[in-house]
């Protein structure tokens, strides 16, 4: 059990760090949005699961469960809104320049 808690806490920090690196590194807004929406939610989810495991079955872990469900529902919606705003504003997605590839 203790090992599982350490694993989840470590996973949370690992994904948070690498997601931020991705947000700093990627070339345009849509790809940055990809990195933030995946790694951000995974880091938060791991930390919440670890704190639920620490507390066991108590009223406190019920509240943490409510927070987890709320984040699972609203976080994709937030990234969808940001992506939709950029798409309707007319920002063009970045595309890799490759001579052999056929354009669609």
């Amino acid at each position: 059990m203790r090992i599982l808690i350490y694993v989840f806490l470590g996973l949370g920090m690992f994904f948070g760090l690498l997601g931020n690196l991705g947000v700093l590194r990627f070339p345009d807004i849509y790809t940055r949005l990809q990195a933030s929406s995946k790694c951000g939610i995974t880091s938060l989810l791991s930390i919440l699961i670890a704190s639920m495991l620490i507390k066991g079955i108590t009223p406190m872990s019920g509240r943490i469960l409510v927070i987890t469900l709320f984040f699972l529902i609203t976080s994709p919606v937030a990234s969808h809104i940001i992506g939709k705003r950029a798409w309707e504003e007319g920002l063009i997605p970045w595309r890799r320049k490759k001579p052999g590839k056929k354009e669609n």
Partner: peptide
């Protein structure tokens, strides 16, 4: 601006 179906549904169920 036309609001998308996702935001409409989620805010309806969350309210």
């Amino acid at each position: 601006m036309k609001e998308s179906e996702i935001v409409d549904m989620i805010s309806r169920k969350l309210f």
